[in-house]
């Protein structure tokens, strides 16, 4: 059918980006969007930020792969995932302020549905570690009520669905070295330096 393909070939060239953007915008207002997201740039690379109607549900580093994060959201929350940047204006602004050293705590509604059980306990307690402070994995284990679950605290931090916003970067090794981080050790170091400069 190559002649038919030739015949209709010019038709493939009309989906210009401006048209697709205008059409996409008509979907972004829909009430049927269960998970809205946008990508914000940051000193740590592009961050994918997603929200449900309950609140911000996920912050994903570029190093993890944004497609992987979207697949995870589609699987664990709802497939009705759409890029709808305006629904995350507030989160994007607060993140920009944080990275600019002008904000010490986030004032956002959060949806912690992606963390369960002890991992949820741990991420909830992360908010108790203030800006510019650090705590050891052992101290967080204590805060979460399971002082011997140090390794589990490490896992919970590594899988924190809301890094930066829920500050797992403030949890460090007992010798003071930063330790592992979902966004990579350099990103953790960057955040600790950013906060110690401001605090």
């Amino acid at each position: 059918m190559s002649t038919t393909d030739d015949l209709l070939s010019t038709i493939g060239r009309d989906d210009d980006p401006a048209t697709m953007a205008r059409l996409h915008a008509r979907l972004e207002e829909s009430r049927d969007v269960d998970v809205a997201y946008r990508v914000v740039d940051s000193p740590l690379g592009d961050l994918l930020v997603a929200t449900t109607e309950r609140g911000v549900v996920r912050v994903g580093f570029e190093s993890v792969g944004h497609d992987a994060v979207l697949d995870e959201l589609g699987r664990d929350l709802s497939p009705r995932v759409l890029r709808a940047p305006r629904r995350l204006d507030d989160a994007a602004r607060q993140l920009a302020e944080y990275f600019g050293g002008e904000r010490e705590r986030f004032d956002l509604r959060l949806d912690t549905r992606l963390a369960h059980g002890f991992r949820l306990e741990v991420v909830e307690h992360l908010r108790e570690i203030g800006y510019g402070e650090t705590a050891s994995y052992a101290q967080v284990a204590e805060l979460a009520g399971r002082p011997r679950a140090i390794r589990a605290v490490g896992t919970a931090c590594a899988r924190n669905p809301l890094p930066v916003v829920l500050p797992c970067h403030r949890v460090v090794r007992s010798d003071g070295t930063p330790g592992q981080y979902a966004g990579g050790p350099a990103a953790k170091r960057y955040l600790l330096d950013l906060e110690s400069a401001g605090a």
Binding site: D15, D71, P79, R80
Partner: peptide, 17 residues
């Protein structure tokens, strides 16, 4: 099921045509 955004990206142009 792929995220809806991916469905729009992959098939939006075809549906418009």
């Amino acid at each position: 099921m792929i995220p809806f955004e991916s469905a729009v990206e992959r098939h939006g142009a075809t549906v418009l045509r």
